[in-house]
Computed example of a mutant assay.
Amino acid sequence: MKIYTYKHPENIEYTGEIAICNEMGETIAISKRVYNHAFQRMVDSIFDYRYFLKYHIEDRAGKQLFTVKKISRRGKLWFEGYDIQLNKKYVISYENWRIGIPTLYITDGDMKIQLEKEMEDWSKFIYNEQVIAEWKAEYMEGQFHMVLHIHDQSPIQKPEFFIAICQATLFVGA
Rank of each mutant, 00 (worst) to 15 (best):
W122P: 04
G25S: 01
I163P: 07
H37D: 13
I132E: 02
D152G: 11
I165Q: 11
E23Y: 13
W97M: 13
M140R: 15
Q64G: 13
E116V: 15
R74I: 03
E26G: 00
E95P: 05
K2Y: 10
Y49L: 11
L65V: 10
I126G: 06
I150G: 07
M42W: 15
I84Y: 09
H56R: 01
T5S: 01
R33Q: 00
E118F: 12
D44W: 02
D44Q: 05
E116N: 15
I46R: 01
M24H: 15
F79C: 02
K158I: 06
K63Q: 14
R60E: 09
M146D: 11
H8I: 06
W122H: 00
Y105I: 10
F161C: 00
Y51A: 11
Y94V: 08
T15L: 12
S93Y: 15
G75W: 03
T5K: 05
Y94I: 03
G81S: 04
E10N: 10
G81V: 00
K88N: 13
V91R: 14
I71D: 06
D110I: 15
S154Y: 02
R41P: 04
Q85S: 10
C21Q: 14
D59C: 05
L53T: 12
K70T: 01
Q40D: 03
V43L: 10
V43S: 03
H8Y: 09
E58T: 14
L148Q: 00
Y6T: 10
K88Y: 08
K7H: 10
Y49I: 02
F39G: 04
M111N: 13
F47G: 09
I163T: 02
Y55F: 14
N22E: 02
L77C: 12
G75V: 00
S93C: 08
I28Q: 07
R74T: 12
I28G: 05
A164L: 00
K158C: 07
F144D: 13
Q153E: 09
I57Q: 01
E10L: 14
E80P: 05
V68P: 03
L65G: 01
D110F: 14
I132S: 06
I92W: 04
S154R: 09
A133L: 07
E10I: 13
M42E: 12
H56E: 10
D108G: 08
G25N: 08
E141W: 15
I20F: 02
K7D: 14
H8F: 08
E26V: 09
I28V: 15
I99L: 09
L77N: 04
L170Y: 09
V43A: 07
V68I: 04
E23Q: 12
Y55I: 04
W135I: 08
K32E: 12
N22R: 05
F161N: 11
L53N: 05
K89F: 06
H145R: 10
K158Y: 07
D48Y: 03
T5P: 00
H145V: 04
R50Y: 09
E141I: 15
D44M: 01
D121F: 14
L86K: 12
K89A: 03
K54F: 04
D59T: 07
L65D: 10
D83R: 07
K112H: 05
K63V: 10
F47K: 13
I3M: 11
L170C: 09
K54V: 06
S72M: 12
